[in-house]
Design a protein around this nucleic acid. Structure first.
Lengths: 192, 192
DNA sequence: GTGTCTATTTATAACAG
DNA sequence: TCTGTTATAAATAGACA
């Protein structure tokens, strides 16, 4: 019996140039992705959101239980995907506004010391630049946000402390007392 | 020759109850979905964004070319294909990542210019540290992160300004030129 | 949590209508 | 453009490491 079709062929995952083929492949694979998203959703109880743009620019989306719920969750919390999210969030559950304020105050004091010593003289422009950049409205906080803030603050603090340590030779009184020796890696876990 | 394994079995797409099995299945299928998203991306030139939450609440995401770009496009431009408008995300409609990106780039350029001119002197280390932190690929920031950083630094700003104001009497050169007179309430919204 | 090994089920490239 | 067929490439359930 003669073969009716050539059947599936092995392909490399590279851009399809032929427009017709691409259209067909896109349509089928779009369903394929959505199917997979649905399966991991129902089978594993996972929330999923998938957004796909066709080359023509048309948007398709699928979500379990629905796109908006998942994206809202993602955008509001935005935990790093490959991070140890549950534990990381757990760790920051007790980070209060007061702790942040404390860190902030420490930082401010350090900056004050710098200013008093006239070391901020040339930095005014940069600070102004930051001010301009930062001078925008904001809404609310999430746990993750606090985490990031805290890390940023810690990094700032560590650098300032470093700076102060250098200066310690002339006047040790400037070194911050509660200096945290084991400052975290300032880098934030990458997304994806 | 005896069969080494039972091989794949047909399954119904329904919730896995056994925790261990679920964990394994989730891990595998997660990669499967991402692979499919990648394939339709490269092969069909389609932009894709996938967000998956594990049952434990851990977030994983994949995007082609990257998650933020696609989600931004989706949230800002495209209404949901089948569903009604994502009212829950209404708030994000007016914030584009491009805006933040622009600001980020402007800031970075300014800081770089300063460095090149040798104007970043000793006392400017804090700013440099922050610059380093900021001067990472934008993908590693979430939209939310940028917003938050901005808020965080507003507190810094206000206090630095305060400090500079105090010093203004003795030496006006310390006062930042574009000092914002109406500094925001520095209190941070409470968590929980 | 990941990696490996199979047997098997699924997904899909090339066609065809 | 969309849908269906078929031969074959890929994904993966289950068991184990």
């Amino acid at each position: 019996m003669p073969k009716k079709t050539a059947g599936r062929k092995k392909i490399d995952i590279e851009k399809i140039e032929n427009h017709e083929r691409l259209q067909v492949a896109f349509s089928k694979r779009r369903l394929g992705v959505f199917t997979k998203a649905n399966e991991i959703g129902t089978r594993c109880g996972a929330q999923t959101a998938v957004v796909v743009y066709s080359p023509a620019g048309k948007a398709y989306s699928y979500g379990h239980p629905n796109v908006e719920t998942v994206l809202d969750r993602y955008l509001n919390n935005a935990p790093a995907p490959d991070d140890d999210a549950p534990t990381a969030l757990e760790a920051y559950r007790n980070v209060t506004i007061h702790e942040l304020n404390q860190q902030y105050n420490d930082l401010r004091d350090q900056l004050e010391a710098e200013v008093i010593r006239g070391k901020m003289l040339k930095a005014n422009k940069e600070v102004a630049a930051f001010q301009a950049w930062l001078n925008r409205p904001l809404e609310s906080f999430s746990l993750r946000d606090l985490e990031i803030m805290q890390k940023a603050m810690q990094h700032l603090k560590s650098n300032v402390n470093e700076k102060l340590k250098e200066l310690a030779g002339s006047s040790s009184s400037f070194v911050v007392s509660n200096l945290d020796e084991s400052v975290d890696d300032p880098s934030i876990p990458d997304i994806q």
